[in-house]
């Protein structure tokens, strides 16, 4: 279980004003379930996501992984924690280094967990199949691949090292309907197989209702309701 406990984040703007992006947010993310998070733009969803995978330090509050406090982990321990919580962003184009092929990016992910080449190619085939990512695109550069395919690849990469939790920050909002449906189905099938806990951020109510077990609503940095 990944838990956020009374997490707040305060930004200091360049004008010197303080801005509370996230106020006192607590949530539990269970393995094998999909938790939705909805809200208007600028309500702090993305900030919460970055805090949950510890890419951004919270101002106050705690992050617990299986009831162990990880909010003050540094260096090695932090890397360890980050590997168990992966994140996929909205924009697929910036998710891949333009100078490397998709295959290279996959190997980068594999190397992070010290996989052998055999395990890596096995995992690659398996994930590409479940996300329906065509293997013939592996040796292409990101600029030569369409946004929809890149987003599939981004999800494949995030699942490469078998994380326990996956945070999806509006993964399909830049894609068309059919691709959105294909990708969402792919993710759901993986959740069921690998029992990964997913935090799915979106502002499409219909989509949230279709994919999530539970939905949290956020407004002005606070959680306002659950369903």
């Amino acid at each position: 279980m990944l838990t956020l406990e009374n997490v707040s984040k305060e930004f200091v703007l360049s004008s010197g004003r303080r801005f509370n992006a996230v106020k006192d947010v607590s949530l539990d993310l269970n393995k094998g379930s999909v938790l939705g998070m909805m809200g208007d733009s600028g309500c702090g969803k993305s900030t919460t996501a970055l805090i949950a995978c510890r890419l951004l330090n919270q101002t106050s509050g705690k992050i617990l992984l299986d009831n162990m406090d990880v909010s003050s982990h540094r260096r090695k321990a932090l890397s360890q924690f980050r590997r168990s919580v992966q994140i996929v962003f909205q924009d697929p184009i910036s998710a891949f280094d333009p100078l490397h092929t998709i295959r290279w990016s996959f190997s980068e992910a594999a190397a992070a967990s010290g996989m052998t080449a055999e395990v890596q190619s096995e995992r690659q085939d398996e994930l590409c199949q479940s996300m329906d990512f065509p293997l013939c695109l592996l040796d292409r550069f990101p600029s030569e691949v369409s946004g929809g395919e890149l987003q599939r690849a981004a999800i494949v990469r995030s699942l490469f090292i078998k994380p326990d939790y996956l945070i999806l920050d509006e993964p399909t909002s830049m894609l068309d309907l059919s691709t959105q449906a294909q990708i969402s189905r792919g993710i759901l099938s993986i959740v069921q197989n690998d029992s990964i806990g997913i935090l799915w951020i979106t502002h499409d109510e219909a989509l949230a209702k279709a994919v999530c077990d539970r939905i949290l609503y956020m407004k002005d940095g606070m959680l306002v309701q659950q369903s």
Binding site: C53, L55, R82, R83, V85, I87, E108, A112, A154
Partner: peptide, 14 residues
């Protein structure tokens, strides 16, 4: 600030 740098961070790279 690009996504790939954040992804690499999330993979535990320093």
């Amino acid at each position: 600030n690009q996504g790939y740098v954040r992804s690499a961070l999330a993979l535990g790279y320093g």
